[in-house]
Simulated assay, not measured.
Amino acid sequence: MGGLTAERRAAREEIRLEAGRRFARGDRSLDIVKDLRVRERSVERWRRNWREGGMEGLMSKAGVARTVRSPRRSHPSSGRGCCTAMAGPLPDLASGTF
């Protein structure tokens, strides 16, 4: 079973909380990225969570799985059929019967 150990989760949480303290001070995201050696996207996500939930919004949520995105839909001509609802002939819109 994958995932982080409790020790690694705590270390990452401390980085997020440090970022939260810096958000409260008004530090710029790029300064936080550089100083904490994290990705800009992570800091942007953390800042959004901090705005919505304060420091509590930055806390670890142990045991909570990430949302899984649905697979990308392929183009109908690829033969992998994503549009089964559209199978069959197109309706005759001019006749008004569909």
Rank of each mutant, 00 (worst) to 15 (best):
R8F: 07
A94S: 14
F98K: 08
E7C: 04
A94T: 08
M86A: 12
A11R: 09
V38A: 06
C82D: 11
L17A: 03
S29R: 15
R8V: 09
V68T: 09
K34P: 00
A85M: 07
L4E: 08
S78M: 06
P76H: 15
L93W: 12
A85F: 15
E14Y: 02
R39L: 10
I15Q: 12
A6E: 14
R21S: 01
K34H: 09
V43Y: 02
R21A: 01
E14I: 06
E13F: 00
G20R: 00
E13A: 05
N49V: 04
R39G: 14
V64E: 15
R8S: 04
G63C: 13
R21W: 03
A6T: 11
R9N: 10
K61S: 08
R51Q: 14
R45H: 11
T84R: 14
A62K: 12
E56I: 05
F98N: 10
S77Q: 13
F23M: 02
T84C: 06
M59N: 07
R45E: 09
L30I: 14
P91K: 15
E13L: 04
S60R: 14
S29G: 09
C82T: 14
G20D: 01
L58G: 04
E40V: 01
L36S: 02
A65G: 12
V38P: 00
R25T: 12
T97P: 02
G79D: 04
N49I: 03
F98A: 10
P89I: 13
V43Q: 02
G2R: 11
R22Q: 10
M59G: 01
A19L: 01
